[in-house]
Design a binder for these strands. Structure first.
Lengths: 257, 257
DNA sequence: CGTTAACTTGATAGCATTCAACTAGCGTGG
DNA sequence: CCACGCTAGTTGAATGCTATCAAGTTAACG
């Protein structure tokens, strides 16, 4: 059902396995037919990971980049003492370790949340693509800058908002991002994220996340549902989370509601 | 006295106003003479700002990039409710709004902490430089990725460390970064940062920052000094802050002690 | 239908905030 | 030259948000 979201409406019959990446880049720039072909023809390897497994680990020296095709992943770091901070969630089309093109050692890890399929592409291949297609290089650079903007917003979220707003803000962001790539619609999003992961993303304890979600439900901002979030009051949720999507740098028209 | 740190030891007699940028890039890659000339010859405008004034504001659409020449600045965002989160501190050589090359609207502000001199360079000029000097483009992309790595570390700092470690970690980072460009030495760094700014960078209250600093002093990790931090126990401070400089992605040899 | 992971609930403890007042340092001006 | 005034830093008391601990409940899954 949700696969419909990935169908290629604009680039002809095939689509190809790397299509989610093309689709994602097209939310940034218009790609020419040649550019789409250049991406679609990239040699890659398909890899499938079970839930909760590391794709790339801190201290690794990757030789390949990862393109998300299906599933969901997160970047995180474990601190001495055992606490974990999650930095971002990633959905199909994302290239979560683009930084490894320029930074040789990983300073954090990338892990799956659910069974996930990715394409791995050798750095040399991508570097050649970027050298010969400056517009694609710019688009990917832009992507990494948006990543950074999201990190900043999360920093503000964790540092200066209280639990209620933090959770609301995160839900607003996830809904907005997933909606933009067709993974959510009608105020309904599949969220394969446990409360523990929500806690590690917001700097809270699981217990407090649980209570805060209950409060949001009591306020009729979101609805009850297993592994799924139903937004009952989008305006209210944005208000509660002080959500202003500017930092996502989406194109006009793709911002929801 | 600290101006000595800016003198150009490697590139001949002049240096030129943009020398801090060249120096900074040289901590990333070896620049050829031609590349240094290309940067040194960039047309720019000098601008001087008093302390506590905005250089770029949220929602601006910059047409120029800023290169820090002298002083200190920070990036921040004000949240509804009046709270402020500081995302980063910037020192001479930094290009704090490089993102404006690819993201048209500012999602945060850039402000001075002390009287500060910057060079502004038109986007078109920089874009031309990057197009004709791919290695410089890569170096600057790399810089923006390190920025992002620092954001992540700060997120973990704010989200998962308690006050004592947070402050210690921040001091370790500032010392390491400033030492790398010659703005600190002998465990001594000039820190024109108020406790309020420290608080907004760590997600704490000024009162708690004050008490935490006192504790660090009582533990003999740092020394008492106005507008200056003297590190009395570098090993201990790193331990207290769980500081591991990997995320700064500095070249081997430039990491201190 | 048993087993485990995820979620929920209640009670207690604690780190950090807030409020309010006070001190120190420093530049300005009488 | 010292008073004034402002900013930055300091201190104490009270409150509160969130964590922790421990136990129970639900849901998912083979």
């Amino acid at each position: 059902m949700s696969l419909v979201a990935f169908r290629d409406d604009s680039s002809g019959p095939s689509g190809g396995p790397l299509h989610p990446l093309i689709r994602k880049l097209e939310t940034i720039i218009e790609l020419t037919a040649e550019e789409k072909t250049a991406i679609g023809d990239l040699p890659f390897a398909l890899r499938t990971y079970p839930a909760d497994s590391d794709i790339v680990r801190e201290h690794d020296r990757p030789t390949h980049c990862v393109v998300m095709l299906e599933g969901m992943a997160c970047r995180y770091k474990l601190l001495p003492g055992g606490k974990r901070q999650i930095f971002s969630f990633h959905i199909p089309g994302d290239m979560p370790d683009a930084q490894s093109l320029h930074l040789d050692v990983m300073d954090h890890s990338l892990a799956t949340l659910v069974p996930t399929q990715v394409a791995t592409i050798h750095h040399d291949v991508i570097r050649h693509l970027l050298r010969t297609n400056p517009r694609i290089a710019d688009a990917i650079w832009r992507e990494t800058l948006i990543d950074a903007a999201i990190f900043r917003e999360w920093m503000a979220n964790v540092g200066r908002r209280e639990a209620h707003a933090r959770i609301a803000h995160l839900l607003c962001e996830l809904y907005t991002k997933m909606r933009a790539v067709g993974l959510a619609r009608d105020s309904r999003l599949e969220l394969p994220i446990t409360q523990e992961e929500l806690a590690d993303a917001t700097g809270l304890s699981t217990v407090h996340v649980n209570r805060t979600l209950q409060q949001l439900r009591a306020e009729k901002l979101i609805g009850q549902a297993a592994r799924k979030v139903i937004i009952q009051d989008w305006q209210g949720l944005q208000r509660a989370g002080q959500f202003d999507p500017t930092y996502l740098h989406m194109r006009r028209g793709s911002v929801s509601d």
